[in-house]
Protein backbone atom coordinates (compact mmCIF):
# COMPACT_ATOMS: atom_id res chain seq x y z
CA UNK A 1 0.00 0.00 0.00
CA UNK A 2 2.82 2.40 0.79
CA UNK A 3 4.47 1.60 -2.52
CA UNK A 4 1.18 2.51 -4.23
CA UNK A 5 1.04 5.92 -2.58
CA UNK A 6 4.71 6.56 -3.30
CA UNK A 7 4.21 5.74 -6.99
CA UNK A 8 1.09 7.87 -7.16
CA UNK A 9 2.80 10.81 -5.51
CA UNK A 10 5.85 10.43 -7.80
CA UNK A 11 3.62 10.74 -10.88
CA UNK A 12 1.80 13.79 -9.51
CA UNK A 13 5.14 15.34 -8.59
CA UNK A 14 6.57 14.65 -12.06
CA UNK A 15 3.59 16.35 -13.72
CA UNK A 16 3.78 19.39 -11.48
CA UNK A 17 7.54 19.72 -11.85
CA UNK A 18 7.31 19.44 -15.64
CA UNK A 19 4.59 22.07 -15.64
CA UNK A 20 6.52 24.47 -13.43
CA UNK A 21 9.42 24.29 -15.88
CA UNK A 22 7.54 24.44 -19.18
CA UNK A 23 4.28 26.21 -18.20
CA UNK A 24 2.83 25.21 -21.55
CA UNK A 25 -0.25 23.47 -20.19
CA UNK A 26 -1.51 25.97 -17.66
CA UNK A 27 -0.77 29.02 -19.79
CA UNK A 28 -2.78 27.69 -22.72
CA UNK A 29 -5.62 26.56 -20.44
CA UNK A 30 -5.81 29.94 -18.73
CA UNK A 31 -5.67 32.05 -21.87
CA UNK A 32 -8.27 29.81 -23.49
CA UNK A 33 -10.56 30.03 -20.44
CA UNK A 34 -10.43 33.82 -20.49
CA UNK A 35 -11.12 33.80 -24.21
CA UNK A 36 -14.20 31.65 -23.71
CA UNK A 37 -15.51 34.14 -21.16
CA UNK A 38 -14.89 36.96 -23.63
CA UNK A 39 -16.61 35.10 -26.44
CA UNK A 40 -19.63 34.58 -24.22
CA UNK A 41 -19.61 38.26 -23.38
CA UNK A 42 -19.80 39.17 -27.06
CA UNK A 43 -22.42 36.53 -27.68
CA UNK A 44 -24.63 37.80 -24.86
CA UNK A 45 -23.77 41.48 -25.13
CA UNK A 46 -27.25 42.54 -26.16
CA UNK A 47 -29.01 41.13 -23.16
CA UNK A 48 -27.59 42.09 -19.79
CA UNK A 49 -30.27 40.24 -17.87
CA UNK A 50 -29.69 37.02 -19.78
CA UNK A 51 -25.98 37.28 -19.10
CA UNK A 52 -26.61 37.52 -15.41
CA UNK A 53 -28.89 34.49 -15.32
CA UNK A 54 -26.54 32.25 -17.32
CA UNK A 55 -23.50 32.80 -15.09
CA UNK A 56 -23.35 29.16 -14.00
CA UNK A 57 -23.70 27.94 -17.57
CA UNK A 58 -20.89 30.18 -18.83
CA UNK A 59 -18.63 29.08 -15.98
CA UNK A 60 -19.12 25.38 -16.63
CA UNK A 61 -18.71 25.67 -20.37
CA UNK A 62 -15.47 27.52 -19.69
CA UNK A 63 -14.23 24.82 -17.30
CA UNK A 64 -15.23 22.03 -19.66
CA UNK A 65 -13.53 23.56 -22.71
CA UNK A 66 -10.36 24.56 -20.90
CA UNK A 67 -10.40 21.13 -19.26
CA UNK A 68 -10.25 19.23 -22.57
CA UNK A 69 -7.27 21.35 -23.57
CA UNK A 70 -5.42 20.37 -20.43
CA UNK A 71 -6.41 16.70 -20.57
CA UNK A 72 -5.26 16.38 -24.16
CA UNK A 73 -1.96 18.10 -23.53
CA UNK A 74 -1.19 16.17 -20.38
CA UNK A 75 -1.65 12.79 -22.10
CA UNK A 76 0.02 13.85 -25.35
CA UNK A 77 3.17 14.73 -23.40
CA UNK A 78 3.31 11.22 -22.04
CA UNK A 79 2.80 9.68 -25.44
CA UNK A 80 5.09 11.88 -27.53
CA UNK A 81 8.19 11.55 -25.43
CA UNK A 82 7.71 7.85 -24.81
CA UNK A 83 7.10 8.63 -21.16
CA UNK A 84 4.01 6.42 -21.04
CA UNK A 85 6.06 3.37 -22.02
CA UNK A 86 8.45 4.19 -19.22
CA UNK A 87 5.60 4.46 -16.75
CA UNK A 88 4.13 1.16 -17.91
CA UNK A 89 7.50 -0.58 -17.60
CA UNK A 90 7.94 0.69 -14.05
CA UNK A 91 7.04 -1.92 -11.45
CA UNK A 92 4.05 0.01 -10.10
CA UNK A 93 0.36 -0.67 -10.00
CA UNK A 94 -1.41 0.55 -13.16
CA UNK A 95 -4.11 2.24 -11.11
CA UNK A 96 -1.37 4.36 -9.46
CA UNK A 97 -0.64 5.74 -12.95
CA UNK A 98 -4.31 6.52 -13.49
CA UNK A 99 -4.80 8.22 -10.13
CA UNK A 100 -1.49 10.04 -10.46
CA UNK A 101 -2.47 11.50 -13.82
CA UNK A 102 -5.99 12.25 -12.61
CA UNK A 103 -4.77 14.11 -9.53
CA UNK A 104 -2.33 16.09 -11.67
CA UNK A 105 -5.11 17.01 -14.09
CA UNK A 106 -7.41 17.89 -11.21
CA UNK A 107 -4.76 20.17 -9.79
CA UNK A 108 -4.50 22.04 -13.11
CA UNK A 109 -8.29 22.32 -13.29
CA UNK A 110 -8.34 23.82 -9.79
CA UNK A 111 -5.72 26.40 -10.75
CA UNK A 112 -7.74 27.43 -13.79
CA UNK A 113 -10.88 27.65 -11.66
CA UNK A 114 -9.03 29.61 -8.99
CA UNK A 115 -8.17 32.20 -11.65
CA UNK A 116 -11.46 32.19 -13.53
CA UNK A 117 -13.73 32.65 -10.50
CA UNK A 118 -12.20 35.91 -9.20
CA UNK A 119 -11.77 37.29 -12.73
CA UNK A 120 -15.39 36.55 -13.50
CA UNK A 121 -16.52 38.06 -10.19
CA UNK A 122 -14.53 41.17 -10.96
CA UNK A 123 -15.68 41.56 -14.56
CA UNK A 124 -19.36 41.07 -13.84
CA UNK A 125 -19.51 42.55 -10.38
CA UNK A 126 -20.89 39.45 -8.69
CA UNK A 127 -19.51 37.44 -5.82
CA UNK A 128 -18.85 33.85 -6.85
CA UNK A 129 -17.05 32.94 -3.66
CA UNK A 130 -19.81 31.11 -1.86
CA UNK A 131 -18.96 27.92 0.04
CA UNK A 132 -21.77 26.04 -1.73
CA UNK A 133 -20.55 27.01 -5.17
CA UNK A 134 -17.00 26.01 -4.30
CA UNK A 135 -18.28 22.61 -3.22
CA UNK A 136 -20.06 22.20 -6.57
CA UNK A 137 -16.90 23.23 -8.42
CA UNK A 138 -14.94 20.65 -6.44
CA UNK A 139 -17.39 17.78 -7.04
CA UNK A 140 -17.96 18.66 -10.69
CA UNK A 141 -14.25 18.88 -11.44
CA UNK A 142 -13.59 15.52 -9.79
CA UNK A 143 -16.20 13.79 -11.96
CA UNK A 144 -15.05 15.56 -15.09
CA UNK A 145 -11.39 14.71 -14.56
CA UNK A 146 -12.11 11.10 -13.54
CA UNK A 147 -13.74 10.38 -16.91
CA UNK A 148 -11.55 12.81 -18.83
CA UNK A 149 -8.25 11.26 -17.76
CA UNK A 150 -9.44 7.81 -18.77
CA UNK A 151 -10.77 8.97 -22.14
CA UNK A 152 -7.73 11.10 -22.93
CA UNK A 153 -5.57 7.99 -22.44
CA UNK A 154 -7.81 6.38 -25.05
CA UNK A 155 -7.97 9.33 -27.45
CA UNK A 156 -4.23 9.83 -27.50
CA UNK A 157 -3.74 6.35 -28.95
CA UNK A 158 -6.05 6.95 -31.92
CA UNK A 159 -5.31 8.38 -35.33
CA UNK A 160 -7.47 11.47 -34.81
CA UNK A 161 -6.06 12.16 -31.30
CA UNK A 162 -6.91 15.64 -29.96
CA UNK A 163 -10.01 15.98 -32.08
CA UNK A 164 -11.53 12.87 -30.61
CA UNK A 165 -11.37 13.70 -26.90
CA UNK A 166 -14.25 16.22 -26.77
CA UNK A 167 -16.39 13.95 -28.93
CA UNK A 168 -15.81 11.03 -26.57
CA UNK A 169 -15.93 13.05 -23.38
CA UNK A 170 -18.83 15.48 -23.64
CA UNK A 171 -21.68 12.99 -24.14
CA UNK A 172 -20.46 11.06 -21.09
CA UNK A 173 -20.06 14.06 -18.76
CA UNK A 174 -23.46 15.56 -19.52
CA UNK A 175 -24.83 14.42 -16.12
CA UNK A 176 -21.97 16.31 -14.43
CA UNK A 177 -22.63 19.44 -16.47
CA UNK A 178 -26.38 19.39 -15.88
CA UNK A 179 -26.05 18.77 -12.16
CA UNK A 180 -23.21 21.26 -11.74
CA UNK A 181 -24.94 24.04 -13.68
CA UNK A 182 -28.17 23.56 -11.75
CA UNK A 183 -26.48 23.35 -8.36
CA UNK A 184 -24.32 26.39 -9.14
CA UNK A 185 -27.34 28.43 -10.22
CA UNK A 186 -29.16 27.30 -7.11
CA UNK A 187 -26.35 28.42 -4.81
CA UNK A 188 -25.92 31.73 -6.65
CA UNK A 189 -29.61 32.51 -6.40
CA UNK A 190 -29.86 31.25 -2.84
CA UNK A 191 -32.39 28.44 -3.18
CA UNK A 192 -33.53 26.22 -0.33
CA UNK A 193 -31.12 23.46 0.60
CA UNK A 194 -33.79 20.82 -0.01
CA UNK A 195 -33.95 21.88 -3.67
CA UNK A 196 -30.19 21.74 -4.10
CA UNK A 197 -29.42 18.44 -2.41
CA UNK A 198 -30.64 16.17 -5.28
CA UNK A 199 -28.09 17.79 -7.58
CA UNK A 200 -25.30 17.43 -5.05
CA UNK A 201 -26.26 13.78 -4.54
CA UNK A 202 -26.20 13.25 -8.29
CA UNK A 203 -22.71 14.75 -8.53
CA UNK A 204 -21.51 12.59 -5.64
CA UNK A 205 -23.04 9.49 -7.21
CA UNK A 206 -21.46 10.24 -10.58
CA UNK A 207 -18.05 10.82 -9.00
CA UNK A 208 -18.13 7.56 -7.06
CA UNK A 209 -19.44 5.48 -9.98
CA UNK A 210 -17.00 6.81 -12.54
CA UNK A 211 -13.93 6.78 -10.30
CA UNK A 212 -14.68 3.14 -9.55
CA UNK A 213 -15.41 2.40 -13.22
CA UNK A 214 -12.27 4.12 -14.48
CA UNK A 215 -10.23 2.32 -11.84
CA UNK A 216 -11.53 -1.01 -13.12
CA UNK A 217 -11.03 -0.43 -16.86
CA UNK A 218 -7.84 1.64 -16.93
CA UNK A 219 -5.68 -1.50 -17.22
CA UNK A 220 -7.34 -2.35 -20.51
CA UNK A 221 -6.64 1.11 -21.92
CA UNK A 222 -2.89 1.20 -21.38
CA UNK A 223 -2.23 -2.48 -22.04
CA UNK A 224 0.21 -2.97 -24.91
Amino acid sequence: MRAFWRALWAIVWKDLAAEVRSRELLSSMLVFALLVILVFDFALVLDVKARHSVTAGVLWVTFAFAGTLGLNRSMAQEKDRGCMDGLLLAPVDRSAIYFGKAIGNLFFMFIVEAVVLPVYSLLYNTNLFKPGLLLVVLLGSVGYVAVGTLLSAMAVQTRTRDVLLPILLFPLVIPVLIAAVNASTAFLQGWELAEISPWINLLLGYDVIFIAGAFMVFDYIVEE
Binding site: V147, P171, L172, G205, Y206, I209, F210
Partner: peptide, 11 residues
Protein backbone atom coordinates in the same frame (compact mmCIF):
# COMPACT_ATOMS: atom_id res chain seq x y z
CA UNK B 1 -19.62 0.80 -24.64
CA UNK B 2 -19.56 0.02 -20.91
CA UNK B 3 -18.92 3.65 -19.90
CA UNK B 4 -21.67 4.85 -22.22
CA UNK B 5 -24.11 2.38 -20.79
CA UNK B 6 -23.33 3.54 -17.23
CA UNK B 7 -23.60 7.21 -18.11
CA UNK B 8 -26.88 7.16 -20.02
CA UNK B 9 -29.16 6.33 -17.04
CA UNK B 10 -27.46 9.11 -15.06
CA UNK B 11 -28.15 11.51 -17.90
Amino acid sequence: AILGFISVPLT
